[in-house]
C-alpha cells in the first residue's frame, strides 16, 4: 500500500495531532528563548552602568530614530497577523501580500539597526569599548540575529506558498513563523523600554 493511501486510511486526527504537537513544541521552544533573552537582560542590567569612561546610553541613543525602528517592527507584527488570518482562510494571494509587507518592514527595521550599530562601532562606541557596550550590542544584536533568521524563513515560506500553495504543511509552518515574529516584537518592547527609554531617562 502506498504511503498516500495509508495516510488516507489513517484518521485525519493523527495529522491534526501532529500539527498540534508542532505548534506546542514551538511555543515551548519560544519559552526557552525567553529565558535566553532574560539572561541577556540580566547581564545588561548588571553592566549597564559600567561605561568605563566611555559613552553611556544617554549620550548614544537617537530616540526619534529608535521610535521609527520600533514602529516598523510593530507594524510588521500587525501585517504578519493579517497574513496569518489570510492563511487560515485559504486566501493565497493575501498571504503572499501580507507576508511580503512584513518582510519589507522587517528589512527596514534590520537595516536601521545595522546602520545604528555601524555608526556606533565606527565612532569609538564599539562593543569592546566597555562592559555596558558589550552588553548593549549583544542583547540588541541577538534580537537582530533572530530577526534575520525570521526574514530568511519568511523568504523561504513566501516562495513555498507561491510554488505549492497553501498546503497543510505550509500552513503549519506559516503558523510557527507567525508566532515567532510576534514573539520578536514582544522582546523588542522590553529592549525599547529597558535599554533605550531607561537609558535615556537616567540623567
Amino acid at each position: 500500500m502506498s504511503v498516500q493511501a495509508a495516510r488516507a486510511v489513517q484518521d485525519l486526527d493523527h495529522e491534526v495531532e501532529a500539527d498540534d504537537r508542532a505548534v506546542f513544541g514551538f511555543w515551548v521552544y519560544l519559552m526557552t528563548d525567553c529565558v535566553l533573552f532574560a539572561s541577556l537582560f540580566a547581564t545588561y542590567a548588571v553592566l549597564h552602568k559600567n561605561t568605563a569612561g566611555g559613552p553611556s546610553g544617554h549620550q548614544l541613543f537617537d530616540m526619534p530614530y529608535v521610535l521609527v525602528e520600533t514602529m516598523a517592527l510593530l507594524t510588521s507584527s500587525f501585517t504578519c497577523g493579517l497574513g496569518m488570518l489570510a492563511a487560515r482562510d485559504g486566501r493565497k494571494n493575501a498571504v503572499v501580500a501580507w507576508f511580503t509587507a512584513t518582510f519589507a518592514l522587517g528589512v527596514t527595521f534590520l537595516t536601521l539597526e545595522l546602520a545604528e550599530f555601524h555608526h556606533l562601532a565606527t565612532t569609538g562606541a564599539g562593543w569592546s569599548r566597555s562592559g555596558f557596550l558589550s552588553a548593549y550590542f549583544t542583547l540588541v544584536g541577538t534580537h537582530g540575529a533572530h530577526i534575520t533568521i525570521g526574514l530568511i524563513w519568511m523568504v523561504v515560506m513566501i516562495s513555498r506558498v507561491l510554488g505549492s500553495g497553501l498546503t497543510r504543511g505550509n500552513i503549519r509552518r506559516l503558523t510557527l513563523l507567525g508566532i515567532f515574529w510576534h514573539f520578536l516584537d514582544l522582546v523588542w518592547i522590553f529592549i525599547f523600554t529597558i535599554v533605550y527609554l531607561m537609558g535615556t531617562a537616567r540623567v
Binding site: V16, D19, D20, L82, I171
Partner: peptide, 24 residues
Amino acid sequence: QHAGTERLDSGLAHAGVRSYVSGF
C-alpha cells in the same frame, strides 16, 4: 483545511481582524 487549522492554533481559529487592529 479549515478544520485542520482550527486544531492547529485554536487561538487563531476564533480570531478576527478586530483583534489585530485593536492590538496594533
